[in-house]
């Protein structure tokens, strides 16, 4: 039933790596207020956080749309970045196109997308070169 769905929208600022993660912190707070179990909140927060970091590194930010139903948390991350050339390759652990300066900040080890898949129960990637990427993750409650 649609009226049982709670929605949150967060803008992900792509200009400053230091502030990346703010939307994930907000999501975590909002999910806590809904009384969802800590383990589920942790999985949703980590998946969202890795996605947010990716948006900042690769796509100059974007928008995160969250839907919480009685059954699951759906996280949609939309960006207008360069797109993913080869999704299968991008899903391999250790494969990364992130610049070296990102690695010195503790990310860009080719674990972002694999971690997002790891913590979600279902993940879909739609990407078009030069247009952008939409990633949808579902985390069962």
């Amino acid at each position: 039933m649609d009226n049982n769905i709670i929605r949150f929208t967060y803008n992900v600022d792509g200009t400053d790596f230091t502030s990346a993660g703010q939307a994930s912190v907000m999501l975590k707070k909002n999910l806590r207020q809904l009384g969802i179990s800590p383990d589920t909140i942790r999985r949703a927060s980590i998946a969202m956080y890795e996605g947010e970091i990716n948006m900042v590194i690769h796509a100059d930010g974007g928008v995160a749309e969250i839907e919480v139903s009685e059954e699951c948390i759906t996280i949609m991350l939309k960006d207008s970045g360069p797109g993913i050339k080869d999704i299968n390759q991008a899903m391999q652990e250790g494969f990364s196109t992130a610049p070296d300066d990102v690695r010195s900040l503790g990310f860009g080890a080719g674990m972002g997308l694999p971690n997002m898949k790891r913590y979600s129960d279902h993940m879909e990637i739609e990407s078009e070169l030069g247009v952008g990427t939409t990633i949808t993750m579902k985390i069962n409650i």
Partner: peptide, 25 residues
């Protein structure tokens, strides 16, 4: 020192030891 590696393993790991210094830690 790699935060994505930290994020890949989860089971009530209550202490993080790192030589990385930035807000993402």
């Amino acid at each position: 020192d790699m935060m994505s590696d930290v994020l890949a393993y989860v089971k009530d790991q209550s202490v993080l030891l790192t030589g990385l210094v930035n807000s993402q830690v």
